[in-house]
Amino acid sequence: MTPSELMQYLLFSAMLFVLGLFGALTRRNTVIVLLSIELMLNAANINLVALSRFLPGGAENARLPHPSLAGDFSATLGQTVALFTIAVAAAEVAVGLAALIAFYRLKASPNVDEMDSLKR
C-alpha cells in the first residue's frame, strides 16, 4: 500500500463521515437518522483498518519482542478496535429502535421533527 492509496481511503472515509452527518441532521425518519449515524461509525472503521496498515507511529510502541512483528500486530489491533466499534454500533441501533417503538406507541409518528412535546 502506498501513501497515495492510504490517502484515498482516508478521503473516502472523510466523505462517508460527512455525508452520514448530513443525513443524520436532515433526514426526518428516525430509522434513517440511525442508519446515517452508522455510516459515520463505518467511516471510523475504515480509518482504523487503513491506518493500521501503515504503522505511522513506529514499531517501538507495541511492546513486542521483535519489531518485525509490529506490522502484523498493528493490523490486528486496528481490526480488533473496528470490531468493538461494530458491536457498539449494533447495540446503539437496537436501543434506538426500541426507543422509537416506545415513542411510536404514544405518538404514532417515526419522524424526528414531530418530537416536539417538550418545549418552553
Partner: peptide, 9 residues
C-alpha cells in the same frame, strides 16, 4: 480512529 491509527496503540 485517527488517534489509534496514527500512533498504533
Amino acid at each position: 480512529s485517527y488517534a489509534i491509527g496514527l500512533t498504533g496503540t
